[in-house]
Design a binder for these strands. Structure first.
Lengths: 68, 68
DNA sequence: GGGAACTCGGGTAATTAGGGTG
DNA sequence: TGTGTCCTAATTACCCGAGTTC
């Protein structure tokens, strides 16, 4: 088998668990274009693990005395 | 005769891994006519790599670079 | 010839999508 | 503005046993 495993995809429920939010909220992020999404022929969404983790790391940048 | 010979065929499990769905779901897509399928003499399904990748790219939506 | 892994088929439970509301 | 919860409809995931593929 060859090999490009490609990219790991996550379900809305998986992403929601990572962010501690409802799957509905994750869906809204995709609708708002704030996160890339892959739709199945049936209409369900899948999210890229790399993008989710990157976005998650970005939000982890809190607790920083940002000089606004 | 046949035209393109270098067409790679993918198994339901391969396609399922690309979409992060169950192999059974891929079978339903073929049954619903959402994706072309080739049946082996034994009744198993095979999918065209080009068709699958094209469908994957078609349903892929990237998040726009939010200009902060 | 024999074995392991995968797929097929149908049926049922869980998840997701979409809109409207607080 | 953003998020959580309500509803209904559609899609997807896991269960079984049997057949097919390599």
């Amino acid at each position: 088998m060859s090999g490009t495993v490609g990219e790991q995809l996550l379900t809305p429920g998986e992403v929601a668990a990572l962010f501690r939010v409802d799957p509905k909220t994750v869906t809204r992020w995709a609708t708002a274009g704030r996160i890339g999404s892959i739709r199945t022929p049936g209409g369900h969404r899948r999210f890229r693990e790399s993008e989710v983790k990157a976005l998650l790391a970005e939000l982890t940048t809190e607790a920083e005395p940002a000089t606004e």
